[in-house]
Write a protein that binds this DNA or RNA. Structure first.
Length: 372
DNA sequence: GCGGATCAC
DNA sequence: TATGGTGATCCGC
């Protein structure tokens, strides 16, 4: 972990503001990352948003320092104790390993952008993003070559790619096409789990067995049928659990697939060199903390540093980290899921006018009431 | 139990 | 000019 207050940052200040848009995303392999970071920094510096990001980054650095100090204080006896704790947990987790089910994760390629291109074919081959000057939902692959990506504000994207075409979001359209894909999914697993409009998990164990085909063959067929029914392409991952299937669907994106066999050695080899940031649930903060405190970058290192993980983190966090190191993930078919909360929020420009703040509160409460 | 932080899409 | 909205979970207090 670099020290963000170092002299080198004063020479290249944009490198201290480096936590946004840095994780690898499909279609962004050839991008000049330093140029993108410089443009993002130039467009961001001085803004309230930027100040808040810096405040959050400073807080994380402080948290890392605190945890490093705790780690350094651990005695040999402590470490020996926590090594035993970790070894025991690893054995217990290993005992839960399930290799009898085949999971498929399907992920539509640049979904919103692809749908918009279907309804307006003149967009084909041109850099395009769905969203507004404030925020982009997604960008097509032509735009990604310029460093434009989902969650980036449009005004920065236009700086990176002056010819970028902006298309406003149209959820009705995406919901309709999502429904078409789900009709295809249903044929392979009637209990499939929708993760969003453009992602789903399918337990294809049964259909593989009944038809005497491999998971890879099902994935090829499903992707063809999705394309026939919608004109859209998707990518798929096949693996013994959902966590791994999700990682696999990203490997040959777009319009590709990757199969990880139901074999313990294959899983352990696959997971060994895998960057932890690829794992769902490990975001930029957790990545920074694990790297900064324990030097952990790959899943394999989760097991090697098991004693520290058990010493420094809660039981549930340590269990999650160790299970990642083992390549374990969900294999069950959860029953119906219930919504636990409902909320409404709106971003607005800063004001100290009490009357206007109360009015906004009333408006948002009204929207929430309508939703409920 | 609550509010803030983190994460995913 | 300008950096989203919804829902879930975890942690510290």
């Amino acid at each position: 972990m670099e020290d963000s207050g170092s002299a080198s940052d004063n020479q290249r200040p944009w490198q201290s503001y480096h936590t946004v848009y840095t994780n690898a995303k499909a279609g962004m392999e050839g991008v000049d990352k330093e140029k993108v970071q410089r443009v993002v920094y130039e467009m961001s510096k001085g803004s309230k948003y930027f100040e808040n990001e810096e405040r959050k980054e400073a807080f994380i650095r402080q948290k890392i320092e605190h945890m490093r100090a705790r780690a350094a204080k651990l005695s040999a006896a402590d470490l020996s104790h926590y090594q035993k704790v970790a070894d025991k947990r690893i054995l217990e987790l290993e005992a839960t390993r399930e290799l009898s089910r085949i999971w498929l994760h399907v992920d539509m390629d640049a979904f919103y952008a692809a749908v918009e291109t279907l309804s307006n074919p003149s967009l084909k081959g041109k850099p395009m993003a769905v969203g507004s000057m404030s925020m982009l939902s997604t960008a097509n692959y032509e735009a990604r070559k310029f460093g434009v990506r989902a969650a980036m504000p449009g005004f920065i994207a236009r700086k990176l790619c002056p010819d970028l075409i902006f298309v406003p979001t149209d959820f009705k359209k995406y919901t309709y096409y999502s429904g078409l894909t789900r009709e295809v999914f249903r044929n392979y697993d009637p209990n499939f789990m929708a993760a969003s409009l453009d992602e789903a998990y399918l337990d294809i164990t049964k259909v593989c067995k009944e038809r005497g085909v491999t998971g890879g063959e099902i994935a090829e067929e499903l992707r063809s049928r999705v394309h026939e029914e919608t004109g859209l392409t998707c990518s798929a991952g096949v693996a013994p659990n959902r966590l791994l299937a999700k990682v696999c669907s990203d490997i040959n994106k777009p319009n590709g697939q990757f199969v990880l066999p139901n074999d313990r050695m294959a899983v352990m080899t696959f997971i060994a060199s895998l960057p932890i940031r690829k794992i769902g649930g490990i975001g930029k903060v957790t990545e920074n903390i694990l790297k900064g405190v324990l030097g952990i970058s790959t899943c394999e290192e989760m097991l090697q540093k098991g004693s520290f993980l058990c010493a420094l983190f809660s039981r549930s966090s340590a269990d999650f980290f160790l299970s990642v190191g083992l390549g374990l993930g969900g294999t069950d078919t959860p029953v119906a899921r219930f919504r636990k909360s409902i909320s409404s929020e709106r971003t607005f420009s800063a004001t100290e006018d009490a009357a206007s703040l109360y009015q906004k509160l009333a408006d948002i409460a009204e929207m929430l009431s309508t939703d409920m």
